[in-house]
């Protein structure tokens, strides 16, 4: 597995783009190290803004910069960015339609044993509920880079959440993304829809299921909002079960969105796999995923139970 993290991919992409675009700004809240943005700050000090430990200020200042023509990437831990500065995201970014990409780093349970304050398991629900806010959870470094390049092409607000550690490669540098979702594998019995860290796990779970005679399709729904409902409905046609997997609370995330879509258009059972509505067990992210059944084996077992 590559050791290049998705946050590193964001920095690398911005470093390249900033060579010819002096309006690209990276703003941090004492988070340039954890956001893998140190190199950007060193390379483009005049395009870097340090705000200190003040996430509300980070987002409002970013909006002010954007209102004067800057393309701002506000980079801060997802846990703080999505809650401490939620109102700033609502008012100064979403409502004001400023060209700010809120980059939530070390999302979900990336911080592991640091505990509940550092988990961001509400961010998909929270940010998706803001009018005009787009929400992305890319699954690997290539897709992350592609999303950043896409975001540089327009002036609309977005929230981009990435994990702390490296993610398994699913694509390569030549993969083109355009529709907010990728049908990675077709299947006729069950459809797995995942985002972020859960995509590779679902792909492996599908392989395990195939060995047991269950044909499982997999969709990487890296853009949660707007969700590519068309692709999901097309792939869900004829399957007995739709399964969602996400590193989020059970409320308002990918599972809720897909269940909403399926119930309105092609009613059938939707199994929503997520982290629980409660305190997350202490441990590394991997230990917690294992505990809650969000491994390839756990996902495959849940699918089989739901089908039986």
């Amino acid at each position: 597995m590559s050791n290049i993290t998705n946050r590193q991919a964001i920095c690398d992409t911005l470093l390249e783009a900033a060579k010819t675009d002096k309006d690209i700004i990276v703003a941090c809240s004492d988070s340039r190290g954890s956001g893998s943005m140190t190199k950007f700050f060193e390379t483009y000090p005049k395009q870097s803004v340090e705000i200190g430990i003040a996430e509300q200020d980070l987002v409002s200042v970013s909006a002010g910069l954007a209102s004067c023509g800057k393309k701002v990437f506000a980079v801060s831990p997802a846990c703080f960015l999505s809650t401490r500065s939620y109102e700033q995201a609502k008012v100064d970014v979403a409502y004001a339609e400023t060209n700010v990409t809120l980059v939530g780093i070390s999302g979900g349970i990336s911080y592991g044993a640091l505990g509940m304050t550092h988990h961001s398991l509400q961010d998909i629900a929270a940010l998706s509920a803001l009018p005009g806010m787009r929400v992305y959870l890319p699954s690997d470094r290539f897709q992350t880079a592609a999303v950043v390049k896409e975001l540089l092409k327009d002036t609309k607000p977005a929230y981009l959440r990435v994990s702390r550690g490296a993610s398994e490669d699913i694509y390569d540098e030549n993969t083109a993304f355009s529709d907010g979702a990728v049908l990675l594998k077709e299947g006729k019995d069950v459809l797995l829809v995942a985002c972020g860290e859960m995509v590779s796990r679902c792909l492996h779970a599908a392989e395990l299921l195939e060995k047991e005679g269950i044909s499982a399709g997999v969709i990487d729904a890296y853009c949660l909002k707007p969700l590519n409902g068309e692709l999901i409905l097309k792939a869900a046609k004829g399957v007995k079960l739709v399964v969602t997997a996400e590193e989020h609370s059970p409320y308002g995330g990918l599972g809720s969105m897909v269940a909403q879509l399926i119930s309105a258009n092609d009613p059938k059972k939707v199994l929503e796999l997520s982290l629980p509505d409660g305190h997350i067990v202490t441990g590394t992210a991997e230990e917690a995923f294992n505990y809650y059944g969000l491994t390839k084996e756990g996902i495959a077992a849940s699918v089989k139970r739901a089908l039986s």
Binding site: V49, V61, G69, K70
Partner: peptide, 10 residues
């Protein structure tokens, strides 16, 4: 804070 961003852009 938004004003800080505008002034910084200037």
């Amino acid at each position: 804070a938004v004003g800080v961003g505008m002034a910084l852009a200037a």
